[in-house]
Simulated assay, not measured.
Amino acid sequence: MLEIEQKFQISDKSQLLAQLEQIGATQGSPLDQEDFYFAHPSRNFVETDEALRIRRIGTENHITYKGPKRATVSKIRKEIELAFEAGPAALSQLKEMLELLGFQPVRNVKKQRTPYSFQHNQRHFEITIDEVEGLGTFAEVETLAEEAELEQAEAAVIQLAGQLGLSSSIRTSYLGMLMQQEESHGAD
């Protein structure tokens, strides 16, 4: 399954909330998320454009592999995500196991995420509003698709983002933005 996503920095959250209400999007419960990214012991994920992450959502835990982004307007990539035992002990043990295998912690990304669901033209969309620590407020418009329906799914994401008044999509991940920010502050 492929993830098709567009991300936007937003300055007027209330305007987006009004648009979401107008289209009939269903709000989910706000989530406290923390992502722990790891570097591969023998492969440079920056060069290969891959990511390995452990995500804590409240007390739930997931491990995710993200493949390289494809060269399109949207961020399209293979994503494999697996849940594992809940709680801080399991999270700590998996982080320790990865480090024992040679993976190195890169950085954490903390955010408050408010998800919205929207069904349109027999396609499910997830729209999220993310308050990212150290970066600001962002919106993501996302759907999942098989390879055969990729063009149609990307067009649907672009169309929905436009309908919500979102423009100037960002392909850089939150991790990438935080690291760029740290590099630019280190150069000062």
Rank of each mutant, 00 (worst) to 15 (best):
Q15M: 10
L16H: 06
L16Y: 05
L17P: 03
E21V: 08
E21W: 00
Q22K: 15
G24D: 10
G24W: 10
A25I: 12
A25K: 11
T26Q: 15
G28W: 06
G28A: 09
S29E: 15
P30C: 09
L31P: 06
L31Q: 15
D32H: 12
D32P: 01
D32Y: 05
D32V: 10
D32L: 14
E34Y: 02
E34R: 14
Y37M: 12
F38W: 10
F38S: 11
F38V: 07
A39Q: 15
H40A: 01
H40W: 05
P41D: 07
P41A: 06
S42W: 01
R43M: 09
E47N: 11
E47Q: 15
D49S: 11
D49L: 11
D49K: 14
E50V: 08
A51D: 10
A51Y: 00
A51R: 08
R53C: 13
R56L: 06
I57G: 01
I57R: 13
G58D: 14
G58H: 08
T59V: 13
E60K: 15
E60N: 07
N61R: 07
H62K: 13
Y65C: 06
K66H: 10
G67M: 04
G67V: 05
G67A: 11
G67L: 12
P68S: 13
P68T: 04
R70A: 13
A71Q: 14
V73K: 12
V73T: 14
S74N: 06
K75M: 01
K75N: 13
I76H: 02
R77G: 00
R77V: 05
E79Y: 05
E79S: 10
E79N: 11
E81C: 06
A83G: 12
F84D: 09
F84N: 07
E85L: 15
E85F: 09
E85Y: 03
A86E: 14
A89R: 07
L94G: 04
L94N: 02
E96T: 15
E96S: 14
M97I: 15
L98Q: 00
L98I: 07
L101F: 15
G102P: 06
F103N: 07
F103A: 04
Q104H: 06
P105N: 05
V106S: 08
V106D: 11
N108D: 11
V109R: 02
V109K: 00
K111L: 10
R113V: 05
R113G: 03
P115Y: 04
P115Q: 04
P115T: 03
Y116V: 03
Y116D: 04
S117T: 13
S117R: 11
Q119W: 06
H120Y: 09
Q122Y: 01
Q122W: 00
R123V: 09
R123W: 08
H124N: 13
H124G: 08
F125K: 09
F125Y: 10
E126K: 14
E126T: 14
E126D: 09
I127H: 06
I129Y: 02
I129L: 15
I129P: 07
I129N: 10
V132I: 12
